[in-house]
Design a binder for these strands. Structure first.
Length: 493
RNA sequence: GCGGGAGUAGUGUAGUGGUUAUCACCGGGGCUUCCCAAGCCCCUAACCCGGGUUCGAAUCCCGGCUUCCGCACCA
């Protein structure tokens, strides 16, 4: 997965810009920092919210509903989900070199049946069976739990521990009954949740690519037993199925050709693709890769990842997993609660679940990287889609004198009432201000100049072409502000 | 978590035992300027943290933290 890295690659460049301009910063840096955590700065918050809004509106547009459940969950949930079992790796620590190895792997490497796992939970048991450190050949000192879940110190009565959720999905599963009632017993249901997930990564790295606390948007699609979803568009996308042969197909033809087995999966792959394009990731950077059998997580029977190329690596930004009936079956078993639905004949069944799971921090990074380009002498431009950019417009006085500043400030305060996503800048030369706005992706700069004083017109500069038009300033003050007005702008002249 | 590199203003850097700690960009103020990081003047701002060696440490040593590269991990 990892490959060559140039001295100053695209990830480095974006991280440098992001830190400098206030998109994101490493957390707790005044105390030396803690790896795996990043703070969003003022521009990052706006950018992230815009990206999430696009996601949310797309999910709503296909009939989705949203819920919001706690970050903290009791042990029962993760016993049922299988996370406790799968997230608790036992590791052996070498007495000599201090290296840690998963006990499970050690057993495999020593040809010991893994079902005997329970016998090898202590360093003594490993040493007695002559299992030695693969690195230096020494004995093991101890075994420790490597938990990928954050466990809270506060316990939940005598019912076990509390954990920070490693995924938001479980909150949607345990609410299945409520969701079914809400939807008047009808399937399919598209139920989504935006929230944070927490994983105690061993080696978080590469800024927002691997965080310990991150924004997820998980969509749990409960399928009915008959009519569900069919892919529609003819848009072709890059597919890399398990056979390793890359194809360029629409999801619909991929189903016909049996590249994607299930039309529901294909439909959501299509939805995911549209969202990624809408937030500004260029199609050449996107592919959908099917997981290998041995790569599938404990709950899924099929999975297609949306991957984006960043600094020459393919990075997962969305996973579209077929979770089958795994989660509801488990929760029904562990809770004793009826989590079935009824088909038209009144027969009970547990619905199958398709899950598109979005990692917004990575999507944000991919969007920035994909939008980044340089003009002359290091002049940087973020060509983010208009609706994604932190600011919709910057209002600028050409000069600070002769009443231009006052005029611009007045326009700014009126403009903020129709569109609060605007900024004002009067420092430095006009060229410098255009450069600043280009660098943070502001699509339009509105400049108040001497003609404005005479006839109330302003210039509007387009970020991508740097061309300008002149319009009456009142046009900007209509509902929707500049993003609506811009539909009638023509910068080609 | 292991092994190896590296941590100096907001950003990128120079500095190999004694410097008012370099330079550039950014940022701020002023002059100028009727549209694309122009020019001139001024200013703010840094040696990751803790111990040690030394008369003296940004510099050498130890530990921690962070970061990068590789390995492992990424349910």
């Amino acid at each position: 997965m990892f490959s060559l890295k140039s001295t100053k690659d695209e990830l480095d460049r974006i991280v440098e810009l992001a830190k400098r301009r206030g998109f994101f910063w490493p957390s707790f840096s005044v105390y030396g920092g803690v790896s795996g955590f990043y703070d969003y700065g003022p521009l990052g918050v706006l950018l992230r919210d815009n990206i999430i809004k696009i996601w949310k509106e797309k999910i709503l547009s296909i009939g989705g509903i949203f819920i919001d459940t706690p970050n903290i969950s009791p042990e029962e949930v993760f016993q049922a989900s299988g996370h406790l079992e799968r997230f608790y790796d036992l590791a052996a620590v070498c007495a000599s070199c201090g290296s840690k190895f998963k006990v499970e792997t050690l057993l495999q490497d020593n040809g010991i049946d893994e079902s005997r796992y329970g016998e090898f939970t202590t360093a003594e048991s490993l040493n007695e069976n002559n299992i030695r450190c693969p690195r230096c050949g020494s004995k093991f000192r101890e075994t420790t739990n490597l938990s990928l879940m954050f466990e809270l110190l506060s316990r939940y009565g005598d019912r076990g521990n509390l954990y920070l959720r490693p995924e938001t999905a479980q909150g949607v599963f345990v609410n299945f009954r409520n969701l079914l009632n809400f939807n008047r017993d009808k399937l399919p249901i598209i139920a989504a949740q935006l929230g944070k997930g927490f994983r105690n990564e061993i080696a978080p790295r590469q800024a927002l690519l691997r965080l310990r606390e991150f924004y997820m948007g998980e969509v749990e699609v409960y399928l009915s037993n008959d009519q569900n979803f069919q892919p529609e568009s003819k848009m072709k996308l890059k597919l890399l199925p398990r056979d390793g042969v890359t194809r360029f197909l629409s999801p619909a033809s991929a189903v016909q050709q049996k590249i994607i087995r299930d039309p529901n999966m294909a439909y959501f792959i299509e939805i995911v693709y549209q969202i990624l394009l809408d937030v500004g990731i260029s199609p050449e950077r996107i592919r959908f890769r099917q997981h290998r059998e041995d790569e599938l997580s404990h709950y899924s029977s099929d999975c297609w990842d949306a991957e984006v190329t960043i600094s020459g690596e393919w990075v997962e930004v969305v996973g579209v997993a077929d979770r089958g009936t795994y989660d509801l079956t488990r929760h029904q078993k562990y809770s004793g609660f009826d989590l079935t639905s009824k088909d038209r004949q009144g027969k009970k069944f547990i619905p199958r679940v398709i899950e598109p799971s979005f990692g917004f921090d990575r999507i944000l990074l991919a969007s920035m990287i994909s939008s980044y380009s340089e003009r002359k002498k290091g002049y940087k431009v973020l060509s983010l889609p208009k609706r994604v950019s932190p600011y919709s417009a910057a209002i600028l006085p050409l000069l600070r004198k002769d009443g231009l500043r006052e005029w611009a400030l007045n326009l700014y305060s009126k403009y903020k009432r129709v569109d609060p996503y605007a900024t004002f800048d009067e420092s430095g030369s006009i060229g410098r201000r255009y450069a600043r706005q280009d660098e943070i992706g502001t699509p339009y700069c509105v400049t108040v100049d001497y003609d404005t004083l005479n006839n109330g017109t302003v210039t509007v500069r387009d970020r991508d072409s740097t061309k300008q038009i002149r319009i009456k300033s009142e046009i900007l003050l209509r509902d929707g502000g500049i993003l609506t007005a811009s539909k009638e702008f023509d910068f080609t002249g």
